[in-house]
Design a protein around this nucleic acid. Structure first.
Lengths: 253, 253
DNA sequence: GCCCAGCCATGATCTGGATCAAAGAATAAA
DNA sequence: TTTATTCTTTGATCCAGATCATGGCTGGGC
């Protein structure tokens, strides 16, 4: 399908941090892992040390394909900074984006031995790599970690069901409002400012995420702007005028 | 939302099988569990015995609500026989069915403490109940079981992504063809006849699963019948004339 | 048997969002 | 600075599928 530069193109740099796990010295990538795995799974020092050993950090420019659908799934990723989109394609090129991944999110987990979707960077991104084999061994050893991963998968499943409701039954306006709310909520969960929401992805990406066209996305944004529900600010920021209003619009009330 | 008869209505019977776990004597419900958990997780005799202890079997007529969205999630279910649908509703009644569950499938797993969707029987059904608290304790004790559950969640996630592609980007005809293929594949995986596929759900249910209306589902079925892709048989059975044909139609090739 | 209530099919019409087209903005390259 | 190039907005038109309406079919209750 798409060409994948799996062995690190020139826009990618790799660094292992097996050596930087001395007490007190935490690599940014370890930091993300601490955030996502530790806090909820209450890992022990030993587990953390072992985890840090298998981590690697990678950087990509915007628009880089991290891996393609059907490729052998050898790595699990965690987003350290930036935004990643994952999508599936139909033979004639129609595209459905199934998720946008923000710092702290995992992707690349696969049941079979190959990825079920393509992952591409939306902005410049840094990723934390977990080699699959080693990760599996670690999971067997530390059930708490597995439990945490399971709970994340369950959360994703619930989100997927919300998205199916959106795709199958909501109108264009409801879709856009739901999308803005989602971004706002995710920002809040990561401890960021929730109101002027940062929307780093293009109209085309939003369209492919919501099952619309770019034209409809654009029209709906201006329509929401005209009716004073939102206003568009500099730097891909969207100001929500009335959160409750938006919440009702998102469900068609 | 919908009224739920959580404590077993008159159309439900309950039986525990804590006493029927003597060697050689396997209750139908244990049988389903053996199939779904054992085969892949390679459980030990001890684990099986403990599992059998917490199982209960329940039967419901067609059209019974097993649990409703938002209710406290106290039970995990496994389908022993029959078909169950799970769905989400919008305030104005629009409905999205997010899945049909066949024998061997689990449902009712929840991250929070409440169900994220409503579950309703499509046909008469018998279910295997796993009390949540006890199940969690068991999972902590036997990581292999948790691993198996995790792998099932991952599979579901992949299926959810396929469904998003379908809902967001496929035409009515492609949706119906994909749906028939899905039923056929699931039948095959459960070791049933894959060709005259049994379609136990109503046109309305299919519509709400595919993001269409009953009229469009009906029209598309007759259209496929007219163009000799399928034929409709007695007893809710659909005969697929050319499997490859259907496969291409499902992806818009 | 008969009646009633859901289902299912099919026709007629309407419409939300797609498609086609083209003119601004923004960003990057030269 | 000027010039490509890509992204966004907006307008005009079209159409797949929704909506509205009707009749036929089937199964369950009495």
């Amino acid at each position: 399908m798409t060409h994948i530069d799996f062995a690190y193109g020139r826009d990618a740099t790799v660094q292992t941090n097996a050596k930087s796990d001395a007490a007190g010295e935490i690599h940014p990538c370890s930091a993300c892992t601490v955030r996502t795995l530790t806090v909820c799974a209450a890992l022990e020092a030993e587990e953390l040390r072992r985890l840090a050993e298998i981590l690697q950090t990678t950087r990509f420019d915007a628009g880089h394909t991290v891996f393609g659908e059907g490729e052998p799934a050898e790595t699990l990723y965690n987003v350290t900074s930036g935004t990643v989109k994952v999508y599936k394609l139909l033979p004639d090129g129609r595209r459905q984006i199934t998720g946008f991944l923000l710092p702290g999110d995992f992707f690349g987990l696969s049941v079979n031995d190959s990825y079920a979707y393509t992952a591409e960077t939306v902005t410049p991104v840094s990723l934390c790599r977990f080699p699959r084999r080693r990760m599996e061994a670690l999971l067997d050893e530390f059930p708490k970690m597995q439990r945490r991963l399971f709970s994340m998968a369950s959360n994703e499943l619930a989100a997927a069901q919300d998205q199916m409701l959106l795709l199958g039954r909501k109108t264009a306006k409801e879709k856009i409002c739901s999308f803005l709310l989602l971004l706002s909520q995710r920002a809040s969960r990561r401890g960021h400012k929730t109101n002027p929401v940062h929307v780093p992805m293009s109209r085309a990406d939003i369209a492919d995420y919501l099952g619309l066209t770019t034209e409809t996305v654009s029209r709906t944004f201006t329509q929401l702007k005209t009716s004073r529900v939102i206003s568009l600010l500099e730097g891909n920021k969207v100001q929500i005028q009335d959160m409750d209003d938006l919440l009702e619009l998102a469900e068609g009330a």
